[in-house]
């Protein structure tokens, strides 16, 4: 009888300590892998240039430089936006990728429409889908205009 209880105590101790030690390693490991990093860099507004000379309803492809922090490296990358002055809405900036599968689209001057060459999605000047497989209107950069300068934030997925 005494032997049985002692045996039980020993094995209970082994499993108990094993569980504690495993948890003490597994929990920090899970935090390490899953919790977003501590330093969250505030996404600054990027100056994409002067938009005071923009003609209404004529889209322009603007390129600008953005500092990208990727892990432990910081690089400066070129980014583009299709910028158009829409009467009533002000200056809007579309992300440069089609909402279907991410191809680069362009402006067709004759049809006055945005055309994606991959699967012929067509978007109107205000970004709405005219025809084609694109599931939603063009995505827009968060944007504001200050002192005639267009300031861009991150791209927001359109509804």
């Amino acid at each position: 009888m005494k032997d049985v209880t002692r045996r039980r105590f020993y094995s209970g101790f082994v499993y108990g300590v094993g569980a504690i030690v495993s948890a003490a390693l597994a929990i920090p490991a899970a935090l390490y892998l899953l919790v977003p990093n501590k330093v969250k860099r505030a996404s600054d507004w990027i100056d994409a240039g002067d938009v005071s000379q923009l003609d209404p309803n004529v889209p322009v492809e603007l390129t600008f430089q953005q500092t990208i922090t990727d892990g432990w490296t910081t690089t400066i990358q070129k980014k583009t936006a299709w910028v158009v002055n829409l009467p009533g809405q002000g200056v809007v900036a579309y992300g440069p990728q089609c909402t279907h599968l991410g191809c680069a689209y362009h402006w067709e001057e004759e049809q006055k429409q945005f055309l994606c060459p991959c699967h012929t999605s067509i978007f109107s000047l205000d970004g709405k889908v005219v025809t084609g497989p694109a599931p939603r209107p063009l995505d827009r950069y968060m944007s504001k205009v200050e002192n005639n300068k267009l300031l861009l934030g991150p791209i927001k997925e359109s509804a």
Partner: peptide
Amino acid sequence: YAPTPGEAYSSLHYILTEVTAGRLM
């Protein structure tokens, strides 16, 4: 961790200062 000189230093710095529980690891 990036195993090349220079980047090794900055990636370890990243582990220590930015990754959650990185310093503990």
